[in-house]
Write a protein that binds this DNA or RNA. Sequence first.
DNA 1: TATACAATTGAGAAACTTTCTCAATTAGAG
DNA 2: CTCTAATTGAGAAAGTTTCTCAATTGTATA
Lengths: 143, 143
Amino acid sequence: MFTVENSKEIKSMFHDKGFKCTPQRLAVLKVLQDTSAYLSINTIHLKVKEFLPDTGLATVYRSLETLVDLNLVVKVHLEDGCHSYVIAPEGHRHPIVCTDCNKVIEFAECPLDDLSKQISEDTGVQIKTHFLQLFGKCKECQA
Amino acid sequence: MFTVENSKEIKSMFHDKGFKCTPQRLAVLKVLQDTSAYLSINTIHLKVKEFLPDTGLATVYRSLETLVDLNLVVKVHLEDGCHSYVIAPEGHRHPIVCTDCNKVIEFAECPLDDLSKQISEDTGVQIKTHFLQLFGKCKECQA
DNA sequence: TATACAATTGAGAAACTTTCTCAATTAGAG
DNA sequence: CTCTAATTGAGAAAGTTTCTCAATTGTATA
């Protein structure tokens, strides 16, 4: 059977929410853990089938939904096209996406935390969440 | 025939890029101008057909592509689901989307302009663009 | 104003993405 | 080990987006 790193922790995360810890779900998680880049559903499906050849596409959709629910994975938007997924960053961070290789680099600061209160006062809108992605060219792709 | 506000300016924007100024394209633009909320393709199609009943769905797709190319319209992502459109804000601004009524409120400051250089230095990534949306509850929906 | 041409349109087909259905399987509690 | 409910795979169905092509239309030019 197939395992991911820290599988005990992950197992209890599944159980805490009443989800079963299935090989398919772990495979989807592992694929994303091993990549740290935005992957489309189809790419994830292909990579999962290297481990578990019988995995159906619908299961990949369902597994991703579950993993997002557990905050282990984030659903993201690329500039053209939607519905890609990446392993969730720890804490409150935002990704920089390399437009050449799709790799994700995180940066620590969130400039919105301070600004949100200011904006709430200025506009009267109760700010609840925000969505921020940066796009650029990573070191390797510059070379 | 159907006109939008500032139609001369808009007409020359089309011509400058070699696009024709068609009633369908103006209708799509007008629908978005009159709403200032994120609208899905289907909603836009319905509203356009109130003016031009024969407009096909494919034309709405194509018109939106053209309007995005002209920077008159922005393609955006809502929290669940994709591919909605809104009239482009002037200058470099980001939207606050009301999660109750989908209305868009803009705020002037872009916190990323200053931060981008800092992040480029820290991470070695050449930051090219960024994507930022805030979500909250607008004044009216709070009442 | 009339003409010619290339861009645009509508309609439906086609491609692609996502969700649903259901019988068979399986994880996990007892 | 057994039982049960959750999960799975497969394909159908639904939904979204793009493509094709003949007919139409905006506009540059005369």
